[in-house]
Design a binder for these strands. Structure first.
Length: 777
DNA sequence: TCGCCCTATATAAGG
DNA sequence: TATAGGGCGA
């Protein structure tokens, strides 16, 4: 049986002619065998611009690696003549490893295979002087970025309560993502921050970075773009060098990356017909909030006239049922390039959709389902729970811990983002580069050595007047009487330490140096004295940090790696269930996928819809599509009628995405007891499918999304799903009423606010509930 | 300068 | 509900 899903938007492009020259079978290289027709075409179409639309699970990575291997083994280019860009280090690593496996041995010399940022850093170090920097510039992290901006706001006397540094940081990031230098920022946008100070703050920030010989992640791309634009000789050199260009996840490129690429690839009427191949899937574009422009991929054929478009549509991952559900869902989006994914085999299990009372029950269900599968010899490692927001993880973790079910969280705070690691890194950075003021500020009083804000201010003043970096200024200030004796002594010791560390750094291995710094600075002692629960873990992390330094030749090499990679590799052999956000799941696959929290407001996220309207909703829908297509064999979707968000209870309707799943691929269930004591409704509702097919349900959905007349749904839905939409004035309860709630029991109404009641429950304490969930008691 | 308490706030997270 | 950061008293 074949699942074949017609996509109504599929006619956006015509079929490609089959015009490639057939290879002689006898001489066919082994790596080509096993590729399907389209994959093979994508591998062999090496010349001219190519867009490979790779649907979920269609063998994209295989095509990418084979294509590169093909170019190398047919000697079309040397490794150093290929530019291959990815978004994540993981993807870059995987490419490198798999090419090696294909052509035998390790690939040497692919120095231009990497992330946008690592390639940007490489280029910028080569031409640093053209961007007004020295080639040993520091790459600052988001912490440093924020600290710097706070200083700028303070210097400008801007109230950082009203205009938080975070907001400025994200505005500047946004501008950099769009390739805008301070002078390019449109007036209107510059005025959006602190009464028109946005642009000058951006300029001041850049000025400070330059003075610090530092740059942020955005600069790694924007400065390179500027250099390529303003120095035709440099551009010509790179154009000449890169015989083949390959970009992975093209739908995630932002404007700077796009402009950068277009310059290098010579698109847009430059007359150069370059061999640029971009690979991506418009249906999996989920990073608009990070600056990604889905338009880039939609527009590729116009940017590179005569581009060949190859669609990979045969899915090797999921069952027809899963693929059918996902295809049906994504069909609701407009403005797609359109693909018709298909697969072979038995239809497989339907998507299980289940409504539950609250998040706790949802977690109980998922856990017991997982245990069931595990008893039937399914590996936990082949199961994943994909949530929209990380706060949803808590319920699952609680449940797994109490059951002793092994789990692991993917993503989340990364190793190099931990405070203790950043502190240690700041010490190392400062030893390597004495004028790294941001690092110095970070650790000047960590561990506490009696140098408070006041002393730091004095030091700042002094450094500024002497036009010196802070560390050098500290060395000078301790022979004056500018500082109080205590601070003066402490600072003197610190400066002495740094001078000594810098000295011995030339003589001893950097791992030894690292240990010396951590011990002599008092940092390890501080953690040893710390009796909090986290302290031992932090000490372990520091040990791990020193251990990971061993793989690097020098301190400088290590620092560059950390700045760009931010993660530490860990080998995983234990059988554990995976818990992560939907975003973190992109590119992964599992036999079984649990998709909890499909509720209006949570998924699709209300905030995204408020901020970005239909485009936001469509991105949420793509996220749902990504989630579903992670599943190979089975998917479980659930939604909870009630959820505690930031401590207060909220009720929600099932996600509209549930309604958009083709019914033939869905098996729905309502949990027993969902209607609690409300006997009489249960008979109508024994199958959820009948509910959401019912006219009442459709009407409720229509009212929900139409936005204006929010009619109160019929009582039956009101009871079943609750509403956030009922008339605020209509609460039938008043202060002092005695009420009963299904979950919390009896209580006394303390306050009424629209349809929200604050109830003091006898057992559960004070809670906010929606009036539809209580009855008179 | 340190530490405690109070209050404001709350997606997603790559490099 | 949890946490982070600011304000204020010792």
């Amino acid at each position: 049986m074949t699942g074949h899903y017609q996509d109504p938007l599929d006619s956006a492009f015509g079929d490609e002619p089959e015009d490639h020259a057939p290879l002689m079978p006898a001489r066919e290289p082994p790596y080509l065998s096993g590729l399907n027709k389209e994959q093979r075409e994508a591998v062999e179409a090496t010349e001219g611009p190519v867009l490979v639309l790779a649907g979920a699970g269609t063998g994209k990575t295989r095509v990418l690696t084979t294509r590169l291997a093909h170019i190398l083994s047919t000697r079309k280019a040397w490794p150093g003549q290929i530019l291959a860009v990815t978004f994540t280090n993981k993807a870059a690593r995987e490419l490198k490893e798999r090419i090696g496996a294909l052509i035998g041995g390790v690939v040497e010399g692919m120095q231009w295979l990497g992330t946008f940022h690592s390639i940007g850093a490489r280029m910028l170090r080569r031409h640093a002087e053209l961007a007004g920097r020295k080639s040993n510039f520091t790459i600052i992290d988001t912490d440093d970025q924020l600290r710097l901006m706070k200083q700028l706001l303070q210097a400008e006397n801007i109230d950082d309560k009203r205009w938080p540094a975070r907001t400025l940081a994200s505005m500047i990031d946004g501008w950099k993502n769009r390739g805008l230098k301070p002078e390019d920022v449109p007036d209107g946008e510059a005025h959006a921050f602190a009464f028109g100070k946005g642009r000058s703050l951006y300029a001041a920030y850049q000025e400070r970075l330059r003075a610090l010989n530092a740059c942020d992640f955005g600069d790694l791309l924007l400065d390179v773009l500027t250099i390529l634009r303003e120095h035709p000789d440099v551009l010509a050199d790179y154009r000449d060098r890169f015989r083949y260009i390959l970009v992975d996840e093209y739908q995630d490129t932002n404007t700077v990356q796009y402009l950068w690429l277009k310059l290098l690839a010579g698109g847009g009427g430059s007359g150069v017909r370059s061999n640029v191949c971009v690979v991506g899937d418009d249906d999996q574009s989920i990073y608009g909030w990070r600056g990604a422009e889905i338009e880039n991929i939609l527009r590729f054929e116009r940017d590179f006239p005569g581009a060949k478009v190859i669609r990979l549509e045969r899915n090797y991952r999921s069952t027809p049922a899963i693929l059918g559900a996902a295809s049906g869902l994504i069909a609701a989006n407009k403005g797609r390039l359109g693909k018709t994914l298909w697969t072979e085999g038995e239809p497989g299990e339907k998507i299980a959709v289940k409504g539950v009372w609250d998040a706790e029950e949802e977690a109980r269900n998922v856990a017991s389902e997982a245990e069931n599968l595990h008893r039937q010899n399914h590996l936990y490692a082949q199961m994943a729970i994909l949530v929209r927001a990380s706060f949803q993880m808590r319920e699952f973790e609680d449940r797994f811990i109490s059951l002793g079910l092994p789990y692991k969280v993917i993503g989340g705070p990364r190793f190099y983002e931990r405070a203790e690691i950043r502190d240690a890194m700041a010490y190392f950075r400062l030893v390597a580069q004495g004028d790294d003021d941001l690092a110095f500020e970070r650790i000047i009083n960590k561990p506490k050595r009696g140098i408070g804000d006041a002393s730091v201010q004095v030091l700042h003043q002094f450094a500024r007047s002497m036009r010196m970096p802070l560390l050098a200024a500290a060395r000078d200030i301790v022979v004056t009487d500018e500082l109080p004796p205590k601070a003066k002594k402490a600072l003197g010791e610190l400066v002495g330490n740094f001078m000594r560390w810098a000295e011995v750094s030339r003589q001893i291995p950097h791992t030894e140096l690292a240990e010396m710094i951590l011990d002599e600075s008092g940092y390890t002692d501080m953690l040893k004295a710390d009796k909090s629960a986290e302290a031992p873990g932090r000490l372990d992390n520091l040990k791990e940090l020193v251990r990971s330094m061993e793989q690097f030749e020098s301190l400088a090499a290590f620092l560059e790696h950390v700045a760009l990679v931010m993660e530490i590799e860990q080998n995983e052999t234990e059988d554990r269930i995976n818990l992560m956000t939907l975003h973190a799941a992109k590119g992964l696959e599992f036999d079984t996928v649990f998709l909890p929290g499909w509720e209006e407001g949570l998924f699709p996220s209300q905030r995204t819809m408020d901020e970005n309207g239909v485009a936001g909703l469509e991105e949420e829908r793509r996220l749902a599509y990504v989630g579903l297509t992670r599943a190979k064999k089975r998917a479980f979707i659930s939604f909870a009628a009630n959820r505690r968000i930031h401590g207060s209870w909220q009720s929600a309707l099932p996600s509209r995405f549930i309604n958009e799943l083709p019914p033939e691929h869905v098996a729905a269930a309502i949990d027993e007891g969902f209607y609690g004591g409300n006997a009489g409704f249960r008979d109508n509702m024994d199958g959820f499918a009948s509910t959401y097919d019912s006219p009442g349900w459709k009407r409720a959905q229509a009212n929900k999304s139409s936005g204006y007349t929010r009619a109160r749904p019929p009582l039956i839905e009101a009871q079943a799903w609750s509403v956030q939409t009922s008339d605020p004035a209509a609460s039938q309860f008043g202060r002092g009423d005695r009420v009963f709630h299904q979950k919390f029991g009896y209580g006394l109404v303390r306050a009424v606010e629209g349809n929200k009641l604050t109830v003091d429950f006898d057992k559960a304490g004070e809670k906010k509930v929606i009036d539809q969930f209580v009855t008179r008691g």
